[in-house]
Write a protein that binds this DNA or RNA. Structure first.
Lengths: 226, 226
DNA sequence: ACAATAATTTAGGATAACCTAAATTTTATT
DNA sequence: AATAAAATTTAGGTTATCCTAAATTATTGT
């Protein structure tokens, strides 16, 4: 019953989860791009996952894939490992938030349930990782997340940054230098309907303004206030 | 130049190091037994390692293998990972000494040099792991070890246990229950030349005596006193 | 309805790491 | 020198994972 999926399969499931998190199906091309393999390889793997026992994905040709309950469980297990590890690396070992992803990606596949439990306890059972991503609890229940993309914020709305969805070290360092990190308070002061640029003003840090494009604003999730 | 060897190769090198640590060569059968594979598989792998660029082992048919300087470096790198990890798991995460081996065996192949450096620093650069095994330093220099097997102790010699060479959880738990752990002071009080049984008396712990066979005494290394 | 895009199939390969059984060769023992 | 033990070779096979190019099919947008 409890076959442990290979690291590669775990990666597939992780990415399918990310692509279907807010509903819908994951497409072959999107998956191929994320995984850095050819679309044909994705089709092949998806067919294996769909015909495995138990099936880990639901697959309809040309429609894309979603996770079955079993696939979802396996995905959440890896995601929990990954996010706990990132949190541990930053909190206990002094890593910076832009360097943890790679390390966590390698460790997530090999740590035991005991290791998971011990670092969770050492961190006092955190519910968000250093990027603000929610961490599923021991029974793989994902904490509620009401956040919306910053790109949907319009003047004069105010919001708090909840999560930053990126594993690119360069982007993360850039965001940090701008002060766009979880917890930061922002207010939309202008929006350009042509290029979708959004001008935001940071609270706290003495009225700093930034103009951000969709490449950035769509990766930052915020909690709109009042 | 710096091809990172696969996990399997790292395991081979680790075991060749252990078998040749005190001189001599490692035999195909011994390696096969340690690795849990068929002798034919070992022959095949050894030939690959010997003809790799750079060669990782020196191999003469029917004579066995030793490590080349490059192979030794690679072996010590994994061993440093393994022993630092064991130390970290016990000291920082509350693992018991009999459960760390398995976890360290999986992690040792995937941690980065940064991770290695950070846990080494967090532990204040330890030179022995929880079993007393020496940990190579950052430049892979192995600390000197003057220890001798407990099996060579004869009445009325006294000694301190330095290292316990075993990864078997059951044996480790047994030794712990007997008080035969690194730091314990022992005195040989009798030796049977027929079955090689050794009777030892533990200091400190109020005169406890144990009779140990070679299976145990050859795995415990001590520093003989006066 | 048609073209463009996306997805799939087909067919062939590659790599790393193992396995087996049987035959052979080398080395060590008596 | 003969035998036993250890090691090697040979000749097959497996599994998991990935790749390519070319042809085909399905879906979507206009």
């Amino acid at each position: 019953m409890k076959n442990i999926p290979s690291s590669t399969i775990q990666d597939y499931l992780k990415h399918i989860y990310a692509l279907t998190e807010r509903g819908g199906m994951a497409s072959t091309t999107d998956l191929a791009a994320r995984l850095g393999v050819a679309p044909a390889s994705v089709t092949g793997m998806i067919q294996r996952l769909a015909t495995a026992t138990p099936p880990l994905v639901t697959y309809r040709k040309h429609q894309g894939v979603t996770l079955t309950p079993e696939g979802r469980r396996a995905a959440l297990e890896v995601i929990r490992h990954h996010r706990l590890l990132e949190t541990y690396l930053v909190t206990m070992l002094g890593y910076s938030w832009d360097t943890v992803h790679e390390e966590a990606c390698r460790l997530e596949h090999v740590i035991s349930e005991e290791f998971e439990a011990r670092i969770a306890a050492a961190l006092d059972h955190p519910i968000r990782d250093p990027h603000g991503e929610p961490i599923p609890d021991e029974s793989l229940e994902m904490p509620a997340d009401e956040s919306l993309p910053l790109s949907s914020l319009r003047p004069p709305q105010k919001a708090v940054i909840l999560r930053v969805q990126s594993s690119d070290p360069a982007l993360l360092r850039h965001l940090e230098s701008l002060g766009l990190v979880p917890g930061a308070q922002v207010e939309a002061v202008a929006h350009s309907p042509f290029d979708q640029n959004l001008t935001i003003e940071l609270r706290q840090t003495a009225q700093v303004r930034h103009v951000v494009g969709v490449a950035i604003s769509s990766r930052i999730y915020v909690l709109v206030q009042e």
